[in-house]
């Protein structure tokens, strides 16, 4: 009983610590930096293809990346020393889960990328085009 209680306390601490690491790397600054590190650029020129009549709404143009090149101007002290997922850590002072995630960049970057700027399309609305 006492051993189980002790183990529960330990696991609760681990959960808190890992959650803390997760929300830190989920921050917009971290997502944007990671998305740009794998070559993604944001396109703030919205263009829609209406499926009902194949009409193109808006003026298509290639994405220049409105945020591209600009270093993060919105600081986050919590990210100091946290490596990009594409650049596995040599050694950092952050929690174990961060370096753990860094060992599998291929699976980690995929869920991170779409969140950078583009939310999932809603139903009944025009489908976004990407060029």
């Amino acid at each position: 009983m006492s051993r189980l209680q002790a183990s529960q306390t330990e696991l609760t601490r681990t959960a808190e610590s890992v959650t803390e690491d997760l929300v830190r790397v989920s921050s917009p600054q971290s997502l944007a930096a990671n998305a740009e590190a794998i070559g993604m650029i944001s396109n703030s020129n919205p263009v829609y293809l209406r499926l009902s009549d194949s009409a193109v709404l808006g003026a298509p143009s290639s994405a220049t990346g409105s945020q591209a090149g600009a270093a993060s101007l919105v600081p986050n002290a919590l990210l100091t020393g946290v490596p990009l997922v594409t650049q596995p850590a040599q050694s950092t002072g952050q929690g174990a889960s961060v370096s753990g995630a860094a060992t599998t960049p291929a699976t980690e970057t995929n869920p991170a990328a779409p969140n950078a700027a583009v939310p999932a399309p809603g139903t009944g609305l025009p489908t976004p085009t990407t060029r």
């Binding site: 917009p28 944007a32 409105s66 945020q67 600009a70 101007l73 919105v74 969140n115 700027a117």
Partner: peptide, 17 residues
């Protein structure tokens, strides 16, 4: 909306600088 807030802060800071 925290994602939009980030974008707006970034765009503002870039042009303000």
């Amino acid at each position: 909306d925290s994602d939009l807030e980030w974008f707006v802060q970034q765009a503002l800071a870039k042009q303000a600088q």
